[in-house]
Structures are given as structure tokens and as C-alpha cells.
């Protein structure tokens, strides 16, 4: 059984479905499948990935995250997929009562590895070995980017903030934690182009004297150079 999901599905739903030993597929990820042209061209690439992946991979079931733990676009996407005949379970996980520690976000692992490790724990959390911590020289705030290669521009001494950190803390709807960053740290505030979270990214970048970037699809050389310049000059 193939189950597609996006965001951070409610752990209770995951647990109940896991008994069937399914193959879980993260529909957020860009697997490079052909565009279905269902959504407008100028739209959040992550949501476009969700639709295109679903059309191509035809999962038996989709667990669609639609609450404050994702976004309204996720909710609309779930409605479209339901209308297209997919078997969709809508999931909300807005419990913010218990924040877990976030050792990966503050570790000395390469930034891309940190983000991949955090998202890889969403469906099947495993006990991680003790990870070496580091003092932050920089920060990365945001969701896992469609173009993960931009994370390779950052040094290992980069701490993770924003929604990705909320995911590690097990509270994807915790906007207070999402807006929390380390003071006086040079931080790149990233949002996917056309994502509602660009509101927060731009606002927080100004508030904390950071760099705001939004990227549609894949980063251009100039956007890479902009990040590189920020990291070198700050």
C-alpha cells in the first residue's frame, strides 16, 4: 500500500495507518515528475509538487495536512485531490503543548543533513545517537526548501529555526516557536516563492537584521551569490 503525505501528519493517524506497513511517500519533495498543469504556473512549488507527485505516483491513500501546521494551500490541494478521485484523509496536528528538544537544529552537522534528518523523522521517528552541538555562526530560518542544494552554501555552524525547527520539536503549528530566533545572529530567512510564510520571513528578516530570500523552484546563480555574499560579509 502506498500512502502519500505532506507536511507533518497527525501522529495518531500515522500510527493507525502504520499497522498496515505501508510505503510512505513525502509528496512535498520534487521528484522531477512532469507538470500536471492543474495549478497556476506562478504558485508555490511545494504545493505543485504535491499535486504533480500525486497524479504521477497514484498513491492508494493521501494523508493531507491542512491545519495551522501546514497552510491554506495545503487545504485547497486536499480538496482538489479529493475531487480528482483520490482517497484523502485530512489531517490536523495543532497540539503545541509539548515541545521536544531540538538537538539536530543546533548540531554541527552540515545544514542539508540537519534538514533531511529532521524531515526524515516525521513519519518514522528513530532514536538518534548523541549529536555534537555547536555555537551558531549563522542561522537558517524556514521550511525545507524545494532546492535543498542552497543549504550546502552554509557552514556547519548554522542553526535551524522556523518551521523546520518546529518539526523537530514535534509542534509544527507552534507559531511562537516558529518566530523565535537567536538574537544578534546573522540569519537567512527563506521562503518558497508564493508561500504564505513569506509574510513571516520578510517581517522577521527586517526585525532581526537578517537576509530575506524567496526562491521559486530552483535557485538562480544570483540568489546563490546573494546568500554567499551575506554569509561572507556578515
Amino acid at each position: 500500500m502506498k500512502i502519500g503525505f505532506w507536511g507533518y501528519p497527525n501522529p495518531d493517524i500515522v500510527k493507525s495507518l502504520d499497522e498496515k506497513n505501508p510505503q510512505w511517500i513525502d509528496l512535498d519533495i520534487d521528484f522531477g515528475y512532469p507538470e500536471s498543469n492543474i495549478l497556476p504556473d506562478a504558485y508555490c512549488k511545494i504545493i505543485k509538487n504535491i499535486i504533480d507527485n500525486a497524479i504521477h505516483l497514484k498513491p492508494d491513500l493521501i494523508v493531507a495536512t491542512i491545519g495551522k501546521d501546514k497552510c491554506d494551500s495545503g487545504w485547497f490541494a486536499s480538496c482538489i485531490l479529493k475531487d480528482l478521485g483520490f482517497n484523502v484523509i485530512q489531517s490536523k496536528f495543532e497540539d503545541i503543548s509539548l515541545r521536544r528538544p531540538t538537538p539536530v537544529s543546533t548540531s554541527d552537522l552540515p545544514l542539508r543533513k540537519k534538514v533531511e534528518l529532521i524531515t526524515g523523522q516525521i513519519i518514522k521517528p528513530t532514536k538518534l545517537p548523541v549529536i555534537k552541538q555547536c555555537h551558531a555562526k549563522f542561522g537558517f530560518w524556514g521550511v525545507p526548501p524545494n532546492d535543498l542544494s542552497i543549504l550546502e552554501l552554509f557552514p556547519n555552524e548554522t542553526h535551524v529555526f522556523g518551521w523546520t525547527k518546529c518539526v523537530e520539536a514535534g509542534v509544527p503549528a507552534d507559531v511562537e516557536l516558529e518566530m523565535e530566533v537567536e538574537k544578534n545572529l546573522p540569519i537567512v530567512f527563506y521562503s518558497q516563492a508564493f508561500c504564505a510564510k513569506s509574510q513571516l520571513a520578510k517581517y522577521l528578516a527586517k526585525k532581526h537584521d537578517g537576509l530575506y530570500i524567496d526562491i521559486d523552484d530552483y535557485a538562480t546563480n544570483s540568489v546563490r551569490a546573494k546568500i554567499e555574499a551575506f554569509l561572507r560579509l556578515r
Binding site: 537584521d209 537576509l211 544570483s222 546573494k226 555574499a229 551575506f230 560579509l233 556578515r234
Partner: peptide, 16 residues
């Protein structure tokens, strides 16, 4: 680029 107290403070690049 904007400098504040001789230190790099902000920047933008209209890319291409």
C-alpha cells in the same frame, strides 16, 4: 549594499 558603522548591514541584488 548598505553599511552601518562601516559594517555590512544589508544588501539586495535584482538577480538578472
Amino acid at each position: 549594499i548598505r553599511f552601518k558603522n562601516s559594517k555590512f548591514a544589508d544588501m539586495d541584488w535584482n538577480t538578472s
